[in-house]
Design a protein around this nucleic acid. Structure first.
Lengths: 347, 347
DNA sequence: CCGCAAAGTTTACGCACGTAAATTTGGGAG
DNA sequence: CTCCCAAATTTACGTGCGTAAACTTTGCGG
C-alpha cells in the first residue's frame, strides 16, 4: 500500500524538492532539469498523491471542464448524442460533466447553476425545448460560451451556435423514397416538446406539396405530454387500427421510438408481414436509426442521423468560442447535417 | 439584464452587509435576523451572482458531490440504473457527477482519478467487470466510501458494499415458469464481461438440476469480446437456425439485449408466430425488462429488475458510509433484490 | 434613559495550489 | 580555483469563501 499524501507541500517534502518546483513540474514536465524530473517521476511511482481539483482550478482562467445538459438519458437518441460529444471532448483533453434534466425545467435550470458555479469553460445543451426557461439560457449565454444541439430554444438567442440535423433534407428523402416505392405516406408527429416536432411536420407537408400530393397528418388522440413516445404512438394507432383506419397505409413517423409503438400496434392487429418476403399493405418508416431498429421484426426503414459529425462539430464550435475569449457576442453559426436513408423491411 | 457580480466581497458591498454575514446567510438563512434576511433576499433578486463552487468546497470537509461510474451509457440498462441512482441522490441534496467508462478500463481508471481529485464524498460504481483494474478500485476504496452496483469486481474488496439483483431467484423463476408451460429451456449466456455472466449461467444449471433436467448451454460461435449484445446473439443463433438447430427450442437469454438479437434471427428464419394467437414452436425469454421489450413483436417474456430499490439502496448504503466517517473499514454488506416475472407473448 | 443580549462588523487565518520576485546553489568553462 | 548562468529554493501574494475572535451597533425591556 503506497503512502497517502494529501497536499503538494507534503509531497515536496517526501520527494525532497521545493513546492514551486513541483508545481512547475506538474504544469510542464519539460520546464525542470532532466535529473530532477527523473527524481520526481520516480518518487511519484511510490506514492499515492492526487492533486486537489478545486485548488488547482481556483486560481486559473480555464478549468478544463465542459458541461453537457441532456433532457433524458433513458432515450437512446440522447445517449448516443452524449457519447458523440464526449469522445471528441475527451480527445481535446476536457473533463466532461453531464447533467440530466429528467424532462424537468427545474432540473435543467439547476444544471445551469451548477455549471456556472463550477466555472466550466463552456456548455453544450440539448434543451428540453418547449419547456426550457428562456431566461435561464439567456443568462447562461451572457456568462459562458454555449452551443445548442439537436433542438432550438423557444426564443432564439443571439450569438448562440446551433448544431443539428437537416430535417428538411431528411424528411424529403424519406417521403420521396416512400412515394417511389408505394402509396404516399401519412405522417405521425411526435409530441410538441421541441423544435424538431414542428420542423419535421412542416418538412413533410412541404415535400408532399412538391410532389403534388395531399399531406395527411394523423390526428393524435392521446395525451402528448409525456416522454414515453412508444406508448404514445401505440395508443394513437391502436385506436385507429381498431376501427380499420390506416391499416394499409404508409406511415412516416417523426422518430423511431414512435415507429416502434406503431409497429407494436400493427402486430397486435395482425397487420405485420407474415414471414420473410411477404408483402403487407401497411408500411412504416421512422427517423433517427435507433440502435434497436435494425433488430425489430420487420426491421425498420429509417433515416440515420450523423451523430459523429454532430458531436464533433458541437465540440469544435464550443472550443472556438472558448478560445475566442471575448467572442461571446460573435455571430451565431448553424451547422445542420444530412441523414442517410436506411432501407430495411418495414417500408 | 441583472448586474453581474463575481465574488461575495462585491456582493456584500452591493447589498450593504458584511461578507461574514452574507456567508452565514448562505450557510443557514435562519441564522440571521429576519430583517437582514429580507434585505439580502430582496437584493439577490436584482443581481446575477453564483457562488464559486471550488472556493466553497475547498475549505469544507464535505463537498456534497457523489460520483457515479457507468460502463456504457448507450445500454438502456445502465441508463435506467443511473436514473434510479440519481433520483434519490438528488433528493438527499447531493450533486451527482457521472463518468462513462465507454467499456474501457483506461477511462474507468481516469474516472476514479477525477473523482479522487474532486474530493467527492463517495462513489457508486457499476464496474466494467472482468476488465476492471482491481488495483484502481482497491486504492479508491481506501480513500473514499464506495458502493458497487450490478456487478462485482474480479477480486473481492473488503469493506465494499454490493447492491444488485438476485440472479439465483430470477433465473430460477424463469426456468420454472418455462418448464411449467412448455419444453425445458436451453440457455444463451452473455459475453463474460462481468460477474452476472457466470452467475446467471450457474443459476440456470442449478435450477435445471433441481428439476431433474439436463441443462443445455448454447455454445457461442461468435466473437464474445464486444458490447453489441444484439448483434452477438443474432450471429450466434442465425448460424444455428440456418442449420435447423434450436428452431423449436425454448431459449432463455441472459438478458433482453441478447433476446432481441435472437428474436431478429428467428424472424429472419420465419420462426416467429404468424399473427396474434398463433402458437409457434420457438419460445424466447429474456432478463432485465428492457423498456423496448414490451414493444417488440412478439413482446418479450422477461424478468424485471427492481431498479428503484437498487438505486435507492445504493445511495442509502453510500450515505451510511459517508456519515459513518471513519467507517471505511466497516464490514461489507450486500443487498440483492428479486426480479418480477413479466409474462408476455414470446414464451 | 440605561443596560444587556443579540446580531452585525472588522480583522484575520486557513484551504491547496499557481506563480512571481528575490535569493541561493551547483556544475562546468575558463 | 574562480566566475557565471541555469536551475532550484525561499518568500510572499493571490484565488473565493468558511469561520473564529474581538469589537461595535442595534433593539428592547425595565
Amino acid at each position: 500500500m503506497k503512502q497517502k499524501i494529501k497536499t503538494m507541500e507534503e509531497l515536496a517534502e517526501a520527494i525532497g524538492v521545493s513546492r514551486p518546483t513541483l508545481s512547475r513540474f506538474f504544469q510542464d514536465a519539460e520546464s525542470v532539469r532532466p535529473s530532477t524530473r527523473q527524481k520526481i517521476e520516480n518518487s511519484l511511482e511510490t506514492v499515492d498523491y492526487v492533486p486537489n481539483f478545486f485548488a488547482t482550478r481556483l486560481n486559473r482562467k480555464s478549468t478544463g471542464l465542459i458541461g453537457v445538459i441532456i433532457p433524458d438519458i433513458e432515450d437512446l437518441f440522447f445517449a448516443r448524442l452524449l457519447n458523440a460529444i464526449e469522445r471528441p471532448a475527451l480527445e481535446a483533453d476536457f473533463t466532461v460533466l453531464t447533467q440530466n434534466s429528467h424532462g424537468s425545467a427545474r432540473l435543467e435550470a439547476r444544471a445551469v447553476e451548477t455549471f456556472l458555479s463550477m466555472n466550466v469553460d463552456g456548455v453544450i445543451v440539448a434543451p428540453l425545448g418547449r419547456d426550457s426557461s428562456s431566461e435561464v439560457f439567456a443568462r447562461l449565454s451572457t456568462r459562458l460560451p454555449i452551443v445548442l444541439v439537436d433542438s432550438r430554444l423557444p426564443d432564439a438567442l443571439p450569438a448562440v451556435d446551433f448544431v443539428g440535423t437537416n430535417n428538411a433534407q431528411s424528411i424529403d428523402t424519406l417521403v420521396n423514397y416512400l412515394c417511389r416505392t408505394g402509396p404516399a405516406p401519412v405522417f405521425l408527429g411526435m409530441p410538441p416538446h421541441n423544435s424538431n416536432s414542428p420542423e419535421r411536420e412542416a418538412a413533410y407537408v412541404d415535400s408532399m406539396g412538391r410532389l403534388g400530393l395531399k399531406p395527411t397528418v394523423i390526428e393524435p388522440h392521446a395525451d402528448p405530454d409525456g416522454w414515453e413516445f412508444e406508448a404514445y404512438a401505440h395508443d394513437v394507432m391502436d385506436s385507429y387500427f381498431g376501427s380499420g383506419r390506416y391499416v394499409d397505409a404508409t406511415i412516416l413517423c417523426a422518430n423511431d421510438r414512435l415507429a416502434t409503438g406503431v409497429l407494436r400496434a400493427a402486430g397486435k392487429h395482425g397487420l405485420l408481414p407474415r414471414g420473410p418476403g411477404a408483402q403487407p399493405g401497411l408500411r412504416i418508416a421512422g427517423h433517427d436509426d435507433n440502435p434497436m431498429s435494425r433488430f425489430m421484426t420487420p426491421s425498420l426503414t429509417t433515416a440515420a442521423q450523423n451523430f459523429e459529425a454532430i458531436g464533433r462539430t458541437s465540440v469544435r464550435l464550443l472550443q472556438r468560442r472558448i478560445e475566442g475569449g471575448d467572442s461571446l457576442r460573435a455571430e451565431a453559426t448553424e451547422e445542420i447535417f444530412d441523414t442517410v436513408l436506411r432501407i430495411r423491411e418495414s417500408a
